[in-house]
């Protein structure tokens, strides 16, 4: 299979991250960090449960951005095999062939995108569970403001 140590993608990524020491040139990281902090802030500072869910979404989105930008390789083309179409990529032989060709054409890395598709699905599931909970909390307490819920509980406990 592809010996990863010799994987040109990995090598170029490593090289790229060497340069990434200089963060200014990598604005994508700044975007990620800003988004992450914004999301986190909303999550913590807001008492409204819906806003908390929105904050969580923004927070998770920052990670999506991180992954997607990781896959980009300077000068790389979209990861669609150039030539050799119909080689039957599903078998191991095809994969080796693909690797061989990758040495000739520089592709962007598709794997992070695939991964993040999964993460996006997970994020949607989280959001929907969160919203469902918010609906049931509203049914039970008549409010979705955290402070009011706490007040109701404190009253019930007293």
């Amino acid at each position: 299979m592809i010996p990863v140590a010799a994987n040109p993608l990995a090598q170029s990524l490593a090289a790229q991250l060497q340069i990434a020491q200089n963060l200014v040139s990598h604005y994508n990281y700044w975007v990620v960090i800003v988004l992450m902090m914004v999301g986190f802030h909303i999550l913590i500072a807001r008492g409204n449960l819906i806003r908390k869910i929105v904050g969580l979404n923004v927070f998770q989105t920052s990670v999506f951005m991180l992954y997607i930008s990781l896959g980009k390789i300077s000068g790389g083309t979209p990861p669609i095999l150039a030539g050799g179409v119909g080689h039957g990529e599903t078998d191991a032989h095809g994969a080796a062939e693909g690797a061989h060709q990758a040495a000739e054409v520089l592709y962007s890395n598709p794997l992070p995108h695939v991964l993040i598709l999964t993460a996006i699905v997970v994020g949607i599931a989280t959001t929907s569970v969160g919203l469902a909970l918010a609906v049931r909390i509203r049914e039970a307490y008549g409010t979705i403001e955290e402070e009011e819920i706490n007040a109701i509980e404190a009253e019930a406990g007293a």
């Binding site: 990863v4 990995a10 990524l13 490593a14 990670v63 990781l70 992070p112 991964l115």
Partner: peptide
């Protein structure tokens, strides 16, 4: 993700 970015492996 950061690990993947450094090694290219999962």
């Amino acid at each position: 993700g950061l690990l993947y970015s450094m090694t290219g492996s999962l």
